[in-house]
């Protein structure tokens, strides 16, 4: 009797709030995942069958992305653009150097320094497969000279991925 009397209240479910909430959830997850992957730039990595997959990422890792044109992105920010070919003297890497210097001067680095800092403070170079080698060399040089880093990891795709796609 009650059901017939008031059909809107107990049975007629309004979907709008649920959809709203679900959208909120999507946005939340998107933001969270984006934060986690912010260091990862979409570059086409070269293939290497011996590439190791690390199950847990070192939280102190610095991911350096090198685009096809040699531009360097760290943490989603463009920190280095190669000089034009006809104006090589316009080479400027201060922003890039500052990142490594700041990293070396951080408290976290000081506490591990002297122990096994190269293991604790790795740099992952994710270079595009077509990126000129010189920019990878540049990162290695800055990492050693300015950053005191010796452990460098080179991002690569595993061969199986190539077969799949």
């Amino acid at each position: 009797m009650a059901k017939v009397h008031d059909p809107e209240e107990p049975e007629g479910m309004n979907m709008t709030p649920m959809i709203d909430v679900t959208f909120q959830l999507i946005i939340f997850f998107m933001l969270v995942t984006d934060m986690a992957n912010r260091q990862i730039e979409l570059v086409k990595l070269p293939q290497a069958s011996k590439a190791i997959k690390e199950p847990v990422e070192d939280p102190q890792i610095l991911i350096v992305n090198i685009r096809k044109d040699g531009a360097v992105k760290i943490d989603g920010k463009l920190v280095f653009t190669p000089p034009p070919l006809d104006k090589p003297q316009e080479f400027k890497a201060e922003k890039l150097e500052n990142i490594f210097v700041a990293r070396r001067q951080s408290d976290a680095y000081r506490t591990v320094a002297g122990k096994d800092d190269q293991v604790k403070y790795p740099v992952l170079i994710r270079a595009d497969r077509s990126a000129p080698w010189q920019w990878v060399q540049m990162i290695m040089m800055i990492a050693t000279k300015e950053g005191g880093v010796t452990r460098v990891q080179m991002g690569a795709m595993q061969e199986q991925a190539e077969v799949k796609s």
Partner: peptide, 16 residues
């Protein structure tokens, strides 16, 4: 899932 890495070591404080 498909990304891996090759681990390398550079000489410490020796540079070039």
């Amino acid at each position: 899932a498909i990304e891996g890495k090759l681990i390398t070591t550079l000489p410490q404080d020796k540079g070039l």
